[in-house]
Simulated assay, not measured.
Amino acid sequence: MITYEYPLNERIRTLLRLEDLFGKASHFINADGAYEHHVALITLFEILEVAGRADLKVDLVQELERQRQILLSFRENPDISEEALSGALYEIEQASSDLLAMAGKVGQYVRENEWLMNIRSRANIPGGVCEFDLPSYHYWRHRPLAERQRELTGWLAPMAPIREGLTIVLRLLRASGRTESLTALRGQYQMMMGGRSAQMLRVRVADEVASVPEISANKYALNVRFVGAESVARPRQTAADIAFELAFCNL
């Protein structure tokens, strides 16, 4: 099954983007090649760009505290494992503590590194990081693998509390959804929201279905339209009936 996630507010959209970027950064840091490490560095700059758009730390701390209070209300519930509950509470409290310990703006230490900022500004120009533009960066890319990985890891590590916090929030958000099995007749499915609220929608489709969902939603209605997965500017709506799963996720 392929899962498509559709955020319904800007805060969740930002968290999903950061989750994707952190995953890519870790992947390319662990690779061996200089080109992969270049991509890791560019991804680090993208993380700074996304994380710096809002007071992300405050939002994450507030949401983690809200989830902590919800979990505390289950303390006396005999159907809830005390060990599992204590583990979840500890994880949330540790993540909140790490976020509160972060000083200044997210990634400020990178912004204060003139060498990195020079690379970032040149990277915005197509082909702008060639060896004749940035000879010191060309030299860095020829340093030993372990040295490059150590520096990349060091530049990413101070933002680990952001990644830990958003990982917990998104895990809880995904777990909140109750999956329904539905069918889009001739590629189209509509539903009146009827007061139902959600922060994110999750649509799951079988791998062999060569169609992708286009989702639009507001407080009144949800529309899921399946179109061909071919790489064209205006793909056509699928004429066949499409079976899919839908979950409304809300914290």
Score class of each variant (00 low, 15 high):
residue 227 V to G: 07
residue 91 E to I: 10
residue 36 E to C: 05
residue 157 A to M: 09
residue 245 E to L: 00
residue 115 W to G: 01
residue 222 L to D: 06
residue 141 R to N: 13
residue 62 Q to E: 15
residue 215 I to C: 07
residue 136 S to Y: 00
residue 139 Y to G: 01
residue 119 I to N: 09
residue 129 V to G: 07
residue 158 P to W: 03
residue 200 M to W: 06
residue 17 R to I: 02
residue 166 L to H: 07
residue 53 R to N: 09
residue 86 S to A: 15
residue 119 I to M: 08
residue 110 V to R: 02
residue 65 E to M: 10
residue 126 P to L: 12
residue 61 V to F: 10
residue 97 S to C: 10
residue 96 S to R: 14
residue 251 L to N: 05
residue 27 H to P: 01
residue 153 T to S: 14
residue 123 A to G: 05
residue 5 E to L: 11
residue 243 A to M: 03
residue 21 L to P: 04
residue 71 L to T: 08
residue 45 F to W: 03
residue 186 R to V: 04
residue 208 E to P: 00
residue 69 Q to E: 14
residue 102 M to V: 15
residue 108 Q to E: 14
residue 218 N to R: 02
residue 44 L to R: 01
residue 204 R to K: 09
residue 87 G to D: 13
residue 193 M to V: 10
residue 14 T to I: 14
residue 215 I to T: 11
residue 226 F to M: 02
residue 196 R to E: 05
residue 39 V to T: 14
residue 61 V to R: 15
residue 119 I to H: 02
residue 75 R to G: 04
residue 223 N to E: 12
residue 41 L to A: 13
residue 50 V to P: 00
residue 131 E to G: 00
residue 116 L to H: 07
residue 93 E to D: 15
residue 93 E to G: 11
residue 121 S to P: 00
residue 105 K to C: 00
residue 53 R to L: 08
residue 150 R to D: 13
residue 15 L to S: 01
residue 182 L to F: 05
residue 81 S to R: 05
residue 116 L to M: 14
residue 75 R to H: 13
residue 23 G to E: 11
residue 187 G to L: 12
residue 45 F to K: 00
residue 141 R to C: 13
residue 14 T to R: 15
residue 120 R to C: 01
residue 58 V to T: 15
residue 100 L to T: 12
residue 118 N to K: 14
residue 186 R to A: 15
residue 71 L to I: 11
residue 148 R to L: 14
residue 205 V to H: 05
residue 154 G to R: 07
residue 129 V to M: 15
residue 63 E to T: 13
residue 36 E to Q: 12
residue 129 V to E: 04
residue 201 L to S: 03
residue 247 A to K: 02
